[in-house]
């Protein structure tokens, strides 16, 4: 490729300074991002820290076989997927609805105020979010229990975080509280780029607010919705683990643990580096496949490629 450029040698000389400046960046990315990939070998070994990567015994796919026979791992894959999909669907719908309603809100000051408040939780840490979830769901004074008892929906407080059947939804709603406002920014930006003439024409034709939202705003948002949805499908396994790790307890372990928590428990706490690496590889490979599928889909639908 370089041979086709007759001035290559000359350019190389001219760009000496730029090339020198790049060298630290190359070394940095290799050490911090590419050397760890060599560690993937551990997944195929019975890795012992005292033997190191080059003298540990190779055992082929043993660790992967163990993983797929391990009930905990199967559960954790299911939990990761379930929470990923629930979060994806709920957060997308909530962000779109919120963006549309905010756009329809009358009065610039009120709109700015709601907007400002809605972004705020995005900047709070997961630790703080977890604390808020504990408070809101608390048995003693939690606002959810109090509210549901006041309206007569339940007669005694529910211990929300001790019941496996609620866990996924608690994670989903906690994420909604934190991110709905933030996620709506991109949709709001898309709404403002919709041609206002369309709204004028529609209102002259007698279309009401809901009709205009349904026939103009939503179709106008379609490309944005699709591209974000596809992009997020690639990220579905990265539901994170912070919230699950912090909110989880022994009573809900079977539904709260994700692949990342599995890696943490087996790899770091129990010191089985090989198994932890194997589980990590599984997650990476599935993620990459999802991203490739997502990108192909985006291309097929005539959207810009994601990478």
């Amino acid at each position: 490729m370089f041979k086709r450029d007759p001035d290559f040698g000359k350019k190389l000389k001219n760009q000496k300074a730029l090339i020198f400046m790049s060298i630290p960046f190359v070394i940095y990315v290799i050490i911090f991002n590419y050397v760890p990939l060599v560690g993937w070998l551990m997944a195929f070994q019975n890795y012992k820290p005292k033997n190191g990567l080059f003298h540990s015994e190779f055992i082929g796919l043993e660790k992967f076989k163990f993983l797929f026979r391990n009930v905990d791992f199967i559960h954790d894959v299911r939990n990761t997927l379930a929470m990923g999909v629930i979060n994806l669907v709920l957060s997308t719908v909530a962000a779109i609805v919120f963006a549309i309603l905010l756009n329809e809100l009358r009065g610039v000051i009120g709109k700015k105020f709601v907007q400002t408040i809605s972004y705020l939780p995005h900047f709070l840490s997961m630790v703080i979010l977890t604390g808020i979830v504990f408070d809101v769901l608390s048995m003693e004074n939690g606002m959810v229990n109090r509210f549901l008892m006041t309206i007569g929906f339940i007669d005694k407080p529910v211990q929300w975080l001790a019941e496996p059947k609620y866990f996924w939804w608690i994670v989903a709603f906690a994420n909604l509280w934190k991110e709905t406002g933030w996620n709506s920014i991109i949709y709001l930006a898309a709404i403002t780029s919709i041609n206002t003439d369309l709204y004028e024409a529609a209102s002259i034709d007698g279309a009401g607010r809901l009709k205009r939202i349904w026939h103009i705003t939503l179709p106008g948002l379609k490309p944005t919705i699709l591209i974000l949805l596809i992009m997020n499908v690639g990220n579905v396994l990265n539901v994170g683990f912070e919230l699950q790790y912090l909110l989880g307890n022994d009573l809900v372990k079977s539904v709260s643990e994700t692949i990342d928590i599995y890696v943490l428990n087996w790899g770091i706490s129990r010191g089985d580096y090989s198994l932890g690496t194997a589980a990590g590889i599984f997650k990476s490979v599935v993620s990459i496949i999802l991203i490739i599928i997502a990108n192909k889909t985006a291309k097929a639908m005539g959207e810009e490629s994601l990478y």
């Binding site: 760890p36 990939l37 560690g39 993937w40 890696v263 932890g276 990590g280 590889i281 990476s284």
Partner: peptide, 17 residues
Amino acid sequence: YVVTMYVNGGLIPVFLV
């Protein structure tokens, strides 16, 4: 650099490095 957005070693290899 762009590749690092999509591929990473994962917790354990990164921890050991």
